[in-house]
Every structure is written in structure tokens, then in C-alpha cells.
Design a protein around this nucleic acid. Structure first.
Length: 256
DNA sequence: ATGCCCGGAACGTCCGGA
């Protein structure tokens, strides 16, 4: 079973790239982030025509997550529990072929310090609670998406350039690590433990892509039973090299 | 010290992104 996560940075702007990537990479499940549209504006028919079922939790203008699957998915949770006042569309969870899969778009948190950073840290705490409940259920689970956290210095092209960014702050990393420490395995790092240029995002600005100035911020958290089934993981860098590409590359895992 | 480059909303620039 191949599962991918892809921050598309606007489904309307990315649809041709997304469709060709689906036909090329052929994931069984694709979790999308930053679709940036209302549910009714999501191009479901185009995606269904390529052989995928669609679950979408959208929002006008920004945020928005989706789960595409070759076999039908059963929706479990729309929106991250724990704050009735949070109306951002950043979390969608479904069952596909006996695997629980969440598509996650964690808040960016910039500028920091400030209310947006506070929201990010609060969101991470809520995700920690959800992750603990999922582990307690002992269902094979994947929590994948754009976490907007670069876990270690080596996941960042330049700590000098990024020193004040919310993505690398000790509080962001500690909150992410607290989730991992429940017993989750991050699949991409697990498969590539020694790669010091293991990136999933390259800013559009300042020639970041051609000089490989990237960040590793898209992650696959696997529950213990699923981590035992991990075969391979990788980054589809070819997708980032194309014209009209997203600033994120798709990331994928292969599960036995 | 700041902007660089994008998408979306909207139609003039601003917000959000990371």
C-alpha cells in the first residue's frame, strides 16, 4: 500500500500538476493540504476521472485538506477536536482498507512570538491528545501532512536564515517531539537516517529550489503496528522541479 | 533591515504562506 502526502498550495492552480502526479506516482491514498477552496469548489470530478474517491474538508481562500483514495474512504473526523472556536480546516481523518489515515495541515505560526504562534502551539497540544487517543485504540494509523515543524537543525538549509522562524523554534520542536515520544515513528527519517539534505519544501523566493535551500516539514507518523510494516519512503523531487509546481514536493511511504 | 515568489480574493493591493 502506497500512501502519499502533498501540500498542493491551491488546488485550482495545481490541478494539472496534481493529475499528472497521480497518474505517474499511483498512490493508493493521497492526503492533500492547502487546497484553498470550499468543498463545492473542489474539482472532485476531474480527480474521480483519474480513479480516486474524494473526501474534502475545505475553506475559502486558505487552509483546506483532502483525502484521495483508490478504494472508498470512511470519514472518521472532520476538524481537529479540542476547540469549538477553531474554524480552520486543517484536519481530516478517515479509514481506508483497515488503516486510519489523517491529512494534517498544521498552523505555520509566524510571526513569533504572537497570537499565531500561540495558536500553533495550542494546535500541537490538541494533536497530541488526538494522537494519544488513536494509539490507545491500537488501530494501524498514519498521521501525515504539512506539520510546519522542522524537527532538527539538519532539516533546515540554514539555521542562521531561519533562526527566528516559527518552524524551528524550540517550543515547536518540543511539542512535535512530545507526540513522537508517545511511540510514533516518522517514516521518511526512519528510512533515510543519514541524509542531511532530506527536504520536502523549498520556498519560491530567493532561488531556494535551484540551490537546494529546503526544509523537512512534511511528516509521516506511523503507529507501532504500521511502523513494523514500513518498506520504503521517499520525496518526489521531480514534481517540485516542474513549471507551476507547488512549493512542497509530494512525500510517500510504502506499507506491506 | 527588508524583500525576493506565489495563490487567492478581488480588481488595488493585501493577506497568508514558511
Amino acid at each position: 500500500m502506497r500512501i502519499a502526502t502533498f501540500n498542493v498550495n491551491g488546488i485550482a492552480a495545481r490541478l494539472p500538476r496534481l493529475l499528472e502526479w497521480l497518474q505517474d506516482a499511483k498512490p493508493d491514498v493521497a492526503c492533500l493540504q492547502e487546497v484553498k477552496c470550499l468543498d463545492e469548489r473542489f474539482p472532485a470530478a476531474d480527480i474521480e476521472a483519474t480513479g480516486y474517491h474524494v473526501l474534502v474538508h475545505g475553506q475559502k481562500g486558505f487552509n483546506g485538506v483532502a483525502i484521495l483514495s483508490r478504494t472508498p474512504a470512511t470519514e472518521v473526523q472532520r476538524g481537529l477536536p479540542g476547540d469549538d472556536l477553531d474554524d480552520h480546516a486543517r484536519y481530516l481523518e478517515a479509514d481506508v482498507n483497515g488503516v486510519r489515515i489523517a491529512s494534517i495541515y498544521l498552523p505555520n505560526g509566524n510571526p513569533q512570538p504572537g497570537p499565531k504562534f500561540d495558536y500553533k502551539l495550542a494546535w500541537l497540544k490538541r494533536l497530541e491528545a488526538r494522537a494519544a487517543a488513536l494509539l490507545a485504540d491500537e488501530i494501524p494509523t498514519v498521521l501525515c501532512g504539512d506539520y510546519n515543524v522542522a524537527p532538527e537543525d539538519r532539516d533546515v538549509f540554514s539555521m542562521t536564515a531561519m533562526a527566528n522562524d516559527a518552524l524551528v523554534q524550540p517550543e515547536s520542536r518540543a511539542a512535535y517531539r512530545a507526540i513522537l515520544n508517545q511511540g510514533w515513528t516518522e517514516a521518511l527519517r526512519a528510512v533515510h537516517p543519514a541524509d542531511d539534505h532530506l527536504y520536502t519544501f523549498w520556498d519560491y523566493q530567493a532561488g531556494c529550489w535551484p540551490r537546494n535551500a529546503g526544509l523537512r516539514i512534511d511528516h509521516f507518523l506511523l503507529s507501532p503496528r504500521l511502523a513494523d510494516r514500513l518498506i520504503n519512503a521517499g520525496v518526489d523531487r521531480d514534481a517540485r522541479a516542474k513549471e507551476k509546481a507547488s512549493d512542497h514536493a509530494p512525500v510517500w511511504i510504502e506499507i506491506a
